[in-house]
Design a binder for these strands. Structure first.
Lengths: 336, 336
DNA sequence: AACGCGTTTTGTAACGATTGAAATTTTTTG
DNA sequence: CAAAAAATTTCAATCGTTACAAAACGCGTT
């Protein structure tokens, strides 16, 4: 005997399963005493409704699946908080899975979620070239799907994103105004993460606007998004004149900063460093890191609102694109 | 929105659903021709098996649920990697949920997982006084349950933990040998996290062994486990003579370090700082942090092995307790 | 033609929960 | 006090799939 079912409760109280079902759903046709007796027994026996069964009957689970590319940063946590906030108030449950920036894991997790027949998926693709067919299949099956943060690129779907290009522009502008002339860009792979391309565009625009020459040698695309990738990028810049670095993420920026420090360069005097996708990581390193901080909670909220709208009204699928604001936070790493 | 079912195939080919089911499962009792005919039709009609129905039928999902207290540190990520490693090789899927150190969320997530009929639960309790009845109920229902990292305390269950007491002893011994005399302990609340008590015990033993006087004024229990709690603890120690701090986690240690730096104390010259539960956070701060690093991946692996054993052989429930080793890593924050 | 004996197919009851209709009990009413 | 009305409770079918038991079929033997 494993999970407690309504049958178990029915047997225990010697009533029919339908009475139990009705009682648990607060059906007014069940006498108050009976209802309370049943609800008490359910609680006592540790009954949890089985949405698998409900879903089989109705085709819905009142559950939303979320795929994040990583969950070891507070960034993801805040987005998820936003999602849960909205879902909770709309009586939806949330299950979360991380792809750890690995397309195979992403696929695997999507499979699990589909097995549980979740009502909708909020996803952040780890690589816009991977799993495209899977997402297309999800769309074909009319399972509501919303993307956030990363540009899904070759899939046409509703999404909640940040204006990467503009924000990157302002950040680089800040570096230029602080007197930096040779600003490097350490970006995620252009073929994998399209946001990296957009921030690169913003970077180029800022250079152009202020009449700085573009030096392709100080634009580096990293393999992954770990600290080590930031460090490796710095190594690649070794022989180039560089007085500022704009990194695609805070993680890359911090990796770069540590490597810079270890080779004796002062931050920000010798090299200013700025990141993106601010998390509290940015405040625990020294010097504290200048970064662009998307409104993560809001991003989660918007994504949840979108998916719930799609679930309750499937025809509203107009592939909305919501832009969430991001705050540029100036800190020590780019001062002076 | 309509899916093709085996019933549709049966109707189309004028055979029974059981024949279709068997044919699709390559049952040898179905004639080869029939089988091929059915499989061809299934393909042609775009049939996809409905896993919800299968789950309901078998009462198992081949999925394991994991509850972590937080997922915004790499610590959790590594444990999860270990769990996934084993589960993947044993053909189990994994779903993960974070309680964010909140007992209500912990309960909520446990409920969701049970609702989806996961085959077993790997959990790290956020507070050993909370949700006890829920876990007991889970055990009563014979849903396999394994704890890791945090001592579950008042629940008798298989668990994978670290020898907190011994490791704390060695770490404090290291501080003493480096000449520190007034070592503070910044611990998690003793009433909430039992590991905090164990590390405290190790701390006291080390003091005693080396004949140092115990000063209760420099033992602080924090509210939570955030950076800010580390900083607050330092404030509380303000008027006490302190030349070293042993913090319950790296996060607390880093929070303490930052506060110390901001009030002009040098680390490690004025105050040495050591943490616990090493993550790569410890290497990105400066000075780099001395810490105790449990073998996180291994911890996850062991927990997964335990739960899979329990699932496949429920009677093997002997409440095993596996101790995973932890490495003490000496870094700049306690040097000199 | 009837029998036996594999081979192949089908009927049916589950799995857990819901629900319209039917059956039962209780209450009201003439 | 019986019949009608109202209030409760139960029956039975359903969702997609599986599996046991039973039935039907084919084929060779007498």
């Amino acid at each position: 005997m494993k999970y407690v079912t309504i049958k178990d409760i029915a047997r225990e109280l010697v009533v029919s399963v339908s009475t139990v079902s009705r009682a648990l759903n607060n059906d007014p046709s069940i006498r108050k005493e009976t209802r309370e007796k049943i609800q008490a027994a359910a609680k006592r026996m540790g009954y949890v409704p089985n949405p698998v069964a409900t879903n089989l009957k109705f085709g819905r689970t009142k559950t939303i699946g979320v795929i994040v590319p990583e969950m070891s940063t507070p960034y993801a946590a805040k987005v998820i908080d936003g999602i849960q906030d909205i879902c909770y108030h709309n009586n939806y449950k949330v299950i979360i899975a991380s792809s750890s920036e690995d397309a195979d894991k992403e696929r695997e997790n999507l499979d699990i979620m589909m097995q549980f027949m979740i009502d909708g998926i909020i996803a952040c693709r780890c690589d816009y070239n991977k799993n495209t067919e899977l997402y297309e299949k999800i769309q074909e099956q009319h399972i509501p799907l919303v993307f956030y943060d990363r540009i899904p690129r070759n899939i046409d779907a509703p999404q909640v994103i940040v204006d990467d290009e503009t924000k990157a522009f302002f950040l680089v502008e800040h570096l230029i105004r602080a007197g930096r002339k040779n600003i490097a860009y350490i970006g995620a792979n252009f073929e994998t993460v399209y946001n990296s391309v957009l921030r690169y565009k913003g970077y180029r625009e800022a250079l152009q606007r202020y009449g700085l020459e573009y030096n392709p040698n100080i634009v580096v695309q990293t393999e992954g998004l770990h600290y080590s990738d930031g460090a490796t990028a710095v190594d690649k810049l070794r022989h180039e004149k560089t007085d500022a670095i704009f990194a695609f993420t805070d993680t890359l920026a911090i990796g770069a900063m540590n490597r810079l420090k270890s080779i004796g360069r002062n931050i920000p005097k010798d090299v200013a460093v700025a990141g993106f996708s601010g998390t509290n990581l940015a405040t625990i390193v020294s010097p504290q890191l200048t970064t662009v901080e998307p409104r993560q909670f809001e991003m989660g909220q918007k994504a949840a609102e979108l998916i719930i709208k799609l679930i309750s009204n499937p025809s509203s699928s107009n592939n909305e694109c919501i832009i969430v604001d991001a705050d540029i936070i100036y800190r020590e790493s780019t001062e002076g």
